[in-house]
Amino acid sequence: MRPSPAIVISNISFAYSARQALANLSLDVASGEIFALLGPNGSGKSTLFRLLATLIPLQQGEIDILSISVRTHAVEVRKRLGVVFQSPSVDAKLRVWENIRHQGWLYGLSGRELTTRGQELLAQLGLADRAHDSVETLSGGLRRRLELAKGMLHCPSILLMDEPSTGLDPAARYDFWTYLRQLRDEHGVTVLLTTHLLEEADHADRVAILSEGQIVACGAPEELRKEVGQESIVVHPIPDHAKQLAAGIAQRLNVQTRTIEDEIHVTADDATATIASLLEQFGPMVSELRLGKPTLEDVFVARTGHRFWNRPADGDSLDAKGRANRKGVRNG
């Protein structure tokens, strides 16, 4: 049984003029869990983040954070939230310590309490020796650490983070997740983060996948992947044969197929046998074939019928990274 919810989102809808960003969305986040909101750009996760952070007002529905209404008691909610934004919120003209002190004063911390807490955080985040340096001289990764220090300075019960890994190299991401787990395990901090990185969402205790302002899947990453199947086969046909090949596979091999643009996703209980039969019967029509464990992208595809990334050419797309653990077979 999960602990009582720290965040309860009930039937919220939000529109920017004519564009509907969120549509009747409901969600609970348990106390002391790391929860990821995963979605492609424009899926509504940043709007949801801003509503949770009290940066924009609710239009429809309710949000309760630690049983306090965001609509009626925003200031009380803010005292309990630590917020780390996607875009930088540190003052580059100030020194590291000056940014920390400023943040502390905003949250009513001063004197020894502020000094102790600030120094502890800077030490924990590897910034102690840069405390008196100008923020302008910090690398992108160190600035993100400073953002995190600001967000955690007043010991919030809930930490909200918008695309927190932006600009971090893999090693820094590892540190970052280590820190989040410490917060969760040792202090019971509830962490809610938004991300468009499929692999990052995999590290959360639970994940909600958003598409077009609605939740299309919610649960532990492992559970969500299991729903798709034990193994995932993706077939790239030779040009102009996708429909024909998909129909043939489904009919002759008695498996489920789903055609997404130029890819055929095959769900089968025995993937190895299916691949062998597939290559034997349809080999000349197959350009490329991949086998791997289902990813959250597969969950997204299964639930929405379209790919996570509409344009695979996007540079930092996890479309490619998410498949990195799959075995590839290229025909010819």
Partner: peptide, 14 residues
């Protein structure tokens, strides 16, 4: 990890 992250101090109350 390239830069170590220390354990969180337990001296500061949340």
């Amino acid at each position: 990890r390239n830069i170590p992250v220390q354990r969180i101090s337990t001296t500061t109350p949340m």
